[in-house]
């Protein structure tokens, strides 16, 4: 008589939690259908010729679309400015959020704490387009609030979004206003979980406030820093709305980020190239996200 083969561990686990899996199944199917399938489809189309991309049987041209975009000096410039913008925005957003969260969590802003929390979070729930239209008017060269204030203080005018030298700064500021509240809330949540005993012990040992923050508080904030940095990286690599509302990729292509450039290619019916750009961006996001996560997780924070 042969003995029955024991059930594999994974099958055993699935059977054990079969009801749970049954409940999750519809949502998993939706994720595959509306989340993963479009990504797979766009990757497939990046290998198709533009003129047949939307046909039932597209003509596939191998890596031709990728060769075309990497031979396009404007795409290389777009790649460069996207990475530069992302690096600046990630560092600034995480740093500002951390500083603001520390301030809100300290005793200095006890009065009006709710107001300040609300003030920093309101832009997050403001519709993107509405917020950026206001910023666009604020940067207006003739009657914008920014230059009105600078002018009244006797300071030189700010080129805002009409000048290639200042447009990145202008967009970074607008997006900082828009997103920093979200990262601040993540930091504040993490701060609720800090162990006060560690801070008190360091205080008893005579550590200064700065040393306690640097060596006690900050290491405990590692989960929030990792989440915020990774999330910000993904967000800013895909920057699109602020561009389409405020600059249309200009002036002189200085804010022609990859998402917007791909959108323009799509608009010009260069579907293959647009998908190749989107796929390149997707790979870049995956790689840089994993790399950043790996670096942050490996860093000794103590």
């Amino acid at each position: 008589m042969t003995r029955a083969q024991p059930m594999p561990v994974w099958a055993h686990e699935m059977w054990r939690y079969r009801v749970l899996y049954l409940f999750v199944l519809p949502f998993a199917a939706l994720v595959v259908l509306f989340g993963l399938w479009p990504i797979v489809q766009s990757i497939i189309l990046s290998f198709a010729s533009s003129s047949t991309a939307f046909r039932l049987s597209p003509d596939y041209v191998g890596l031709e679309n990728f060769q075309t975009i990497f031979a396009d000096r404007r795409f290389i410039a777009s790649l460069r400015v996207t990475l530069l913008y992302t690096a600046i925005s990630v560092v600034l957003n995480v740093a500002f959020a951390l500083g603001y969260a520390v301030l809100l969590n300290s005793g200095y802003l006890k009065r009006g704490n709710t107001f300040f929390r609300l003030a920093v979070f309101l832009p997050v729930i403001t519709p993107d387009v509405a917020g950026f239209i206001v910023w666009k008017w604020m940067y207006n060269q003739n009657f914008g609030a920014v230059n009105a204030v600078l002018g009244s203080l006797g300071l030189p005018m700010f080129g805002g979004i009409a000048d290639t030298d200042t447009v990145l700064t202008a967009l970074v500021a607008a997006e900082l206003w828009k997103h920093v509240g979200f990262y601040t809330i993540i930091f504040l949540t993490n701060m609720q979980l800090l162990d006060p005993a560690l801070d008190e012990a360091a205080k008893i040992d005579g550590a200064t406030a700065w040393r306690r923050f640097w060596h006690v508080t900050l290491p405990q904030l590692r989960p929030a820093i990792t989440i915020n940095a990774v999330f910000a990286l993904i967000q800013f690599l895909k920057t699109f709305t602020v561009v389409i509302v405020m600059t249309k990729g200009g002036p002189n292509f200085s804010t022609n980020f990859i998402s917007y450039y791909a959108f323009q290619k799509f608009d010009q019916a260069a579907y293959g190239e647009a998908m190749a750009m989107a796929t390149t961006l997707f790979v870049l996001v995956l790689f840089l996200t994993y790399f950043l996560y790996w670096v942050l997780e490996r860093t000794d924070w103590r």
């Binding site: 060269q141 979004i161 009409a162």
Partner: peptide
């Protein structure tokens, strides 16, 4: 023309 015209569609 308005200086912002470079961003105008």
């Amino acid at each position: 023309v308005a200086p912002d015209s470079v961003n105008h569609s």
